[in-house]
Design a protein around this nucleic acid. Structure first.
Lengths: 183, 183
DNA sequence: ATTATCTATAGATCTATAGATAATGC
DNA sequence: ATTATCTATAGATCTATAGATAATGC
């Protein structure tokens, strides 16, 4: 049953990616190690050869999810990004959507190791949206942080409403209108 | 060991209030029924004479927490409210602070019964901030929802950062500056 | 020989229920 | 007699570990 070193590394990466999705869908407490490993096509016991604890995986999965979230913002047109971020499709796809919107609330109750990854993820977003963006005053750190918080809050509040609630859509639309035309 | 009907009602209310605090501090999955009852000064088994299930209590505790959150916004001066909401004190007091910021992420994964209470809580906030507020255009539904999402996002992101992280404070300050002087 | 994975399980949770107890409220 | 609370426990989780297995990599 032993496999190559390369395969083991691939298995490890696959566990992290599977976790990044499942945690976003169901929260850190909503997914057990056994179920997670089964979803990755492996068995429960093998987990602890790859990670010291579930908390260690939470930190790695956060880094993985946040990096792919930040990657999606690279070079994106601002208005197009806002439209996508505040779309019903994004709101209804928690497992593949923004990691900050899906897990910031959970992360706040986790050890600093997990929270440090969230801070790094926010810094990655800042690095991408503050340099070479042209319009001065629009791309300083404060402006990017402000917009990021605004977006995350809109998605989080919209998701807290019942399915098919008119209010859930109203929240997205209110923030979209405001962010596209701030004046 | 039996008590009066009035005492039983008081016990029930006390369970709901205790839950509203503990859930905000540790999340819905982070507090068990036995621990919650012990915190309320009662024993585990008595819980099910008051509530059909833990999920039923989550819905009641959400309504309780959201009502007290909305109550705090009644008649408040806008700038003073923003300053308090985005203060470090509020960020670091999850158990007594805004229910939406503390539990929206968790609520999104709960049954519609819980999410319906969140939608009602948002409507309560709308009812309070859209009528008789004077300045036209500042107090329509869209403007209130936009500000609410902005505030919730700022607190949620700030809490996801490590303790004593400069970034956590920077997020609050960026949103405070923007919300106090939107132009 | 090493080690990635597997099976099996220990020990500690968790929600919910059953049955006993004892004071209220008819 | 009713019922709010209690003790005790059933049954199902959960994280983590122990020991067996078998193919890689020296």
């Amino acid at each position: 049953m032993k496999i190559t070193k390369a395969q083991s590394q691939a298995n490890r990466a696959h566990i992290v990616e599977t976790a990044a999705t499942l945690f976003r869908e169901r929260g850190y407490d909503g997914v057990g190690v056994a179920e997670l490993m089964a979803a990755a096509g492996l068995t429960h016991g093998g987990f602890y050869k790859h990670f010291g604890s579930k908390a260690d995986l939470m930190a790695e999965a956060a880094a993985c999810g946040l990096a792919s979230t930040a990657q999606r913002a690279v070079g994106a047109n601002r208005d197009a990004f806002l439209d996508h971020y505040l779309s019903r499709e994004h709101r209804d796809a928690r497992g593949t959507g923004c990691t900050m919107a899906a897990l910031s609330g959970d992360a706040a109750r986790q050890p600093d190791a997990v929270r440090a990854r969230f801070a790094e993820g926010i810094e990655q977003m800042l690095a991408q949206r503050t340099d070479g963006d042209g319009a001065p005053g629009q791309s300083d750190r404060a402006a990017v942080l402000d917009t990021l918080a605004h977006l995350v809050g809109a998605l989080v509040l919209s998701r807290a409403c019942p399915d098919d609630s008119p209010l859930a859509d109203e929240i997205l639309e209110a923030c979209r209108a405001r962010l596209r035309d701030p004046r």
